[in-house]
Simulated assay, not measured.
Amino acid sequence: MQLRETGHDAAPAGAGALPGFAAIDWSQPWFAQFARRGLRWQQAALTGYAALLAEMNADAAEMRLTTGRGQRLAFIAQDDLPAGAAYEAHIASTGCVPTRHNLHDFFNGSMWFAFPRIKAALNARQSAAIDALGVGPTRGGVRDTLTLFDENALLFACADPALSMALRGFDWQTLLVARRDAWGTSCEVRCFGHALLEKLIAPFKACTGHAWIVDVPAAYFEWDAAARDAWLDESVSTALLGTEALTSRMFAPLPVLGIPGWWPENESSAFYDDASVFRAGRRSR
């Protein structure tokens, strides 16, 4: 089945065929956090489109997930999106997420399970903006920021303000070299953006996410992964719903392969000498 484009940012229809699904390496740290469910979905996707939708919907029914307007979540084939319907508005009003048989939508669906409150908050804000302003040639600043979050965000959980300041200030030597031992004890990253995850199928040094800084208590790093994710889900969704003036300057760029422990080559401090990737940036931010 040829899948038509929907208006949500994605690879072209027909992209991300079966070799793409087979290429997911769940041992990579950016995928490992989703591996338990992802492995099942991957096998279903390799079986076929209908099998993937069935697996996603079985999980959605079991977890009783809802959208930003409280509609029960379900995943539908792309061709079931009514002609002329806005993607986010359709999800909000019906609970049905149009989903193609490709990597982009596979990872988008994964985020509804990994961080359901954040996805619901993004959908609520997007659909409210569509209700107020309609669907025009441009999204506007708030919707652009929401889309950037949805597509390319990293969640930077941090209990040490000096590390957050280093990230904001493009101080890579402090964040990634001098304070390397702080990763896992005072800061860590969760991937969120589904387009970012799609790019990381074939990782490259310049691949950069938009880090959303989340201040966490020191005790956060004593919790298990499920408790951490639940805390991030609640905290970030509350911020997204409660911050009226969302702008792209609320993010900080972070090259993914520079994250300590995420790429073998960054064990050498020389890895960070590449100024084309680890840029000086705008230190006045």
Rank of each mutant, 00 (worst) to 15 (best):
D9P: 08
A15L: 07
A17S: 14
A17G: 14
P19S: 13
F21M: 08
I24F: 06
I24M: 11
D25C: 06
W26M: 10
W30Q: 00
Q33F: 04
Q33C: 11
A35H: 10
A35Y: 08
R36H: 15
R37S: 14
R40L: 12
Q43T: 04
A44M: 12
A50K: 08
A51Y: 01
A51P: 00
A54Y: 00
N57A: 02
N57V: 03
A58G: 02
A60C: 03
A61N: 00
E62W: 04
E62C: 04
R64Q: 09
L65E: 04
L65D: 04
G68L: 01
G70N: 11
Q71A: 15
A74P: 05
D80H: 15
L81S: 13
P82F: 13
G84R: 11
A85G: 14
A86M: 12
E88G: 10
E88N: 14
V97D: 13
V97T: 13
V97P: 14
T99N: 11
H101V: 00
N102F: 01
N102L: 00
H104I: 03
F106H: 11
F107V: 04
F107L: 10
F113Y: 13
I118G: 07
Q126S: 13
A129T: 06
D131G: 05
L133W: 09
V135W: 04
P137M: 08
T138C: 10
T138F: 08
G141S: 12
V142D: 10
L146R: 04
D150T: 07
N152R: 07
A153F: 09
A153T: 08
L155T: 01
L155S: 06
C158R: 01
D160P: 00
P161S: 07
A162T: 10
A162I: 02
L163H: 04
S164L: 08
S164H: 03
M165L: 13
A166T: 12
T174P: 03
T174Q: 04
L176W: 00
L176T: 05
R179M: 02
R180M: 06
D181C: 02
D181L: 06
W183L: 11
W183A: 09
T185A: 14
S186I: 06
V189N: 06
R190Y: 15
C191M: 13
C191N: 11
F192E: 11
A195V: 15
E198D: 14
K199C: 15
K199L: 15
L200Y: 12
A202T: 15
P203Q: 09
P203W: 08
P203A: 08
A206K: 11
C207H: 09
C207Q: 11
H210K: 06
V216F: 01
A219H: 00
Y220M: 03
E222H: 10
E222V: 01
W223E: 05
D224W: 02
A225Q: 09
R228N: 03
D229W: 00
E234A: 14
E234G: 03
L241R: 09
E244N: 08
A245D: 12
A245V: 02
L246C: 02
L246K: 10
T247A: 12
S248V: 01
S248F: 01
R249V: 09
A252H: 07
L257H: 00
N266L: 03
S268K: 02
S269K: 05
F271K: 06
D274W: 06
D274C: 05
A275S: 15
S276I: 04
A280T: 14
G281N: 13
S284P: 13
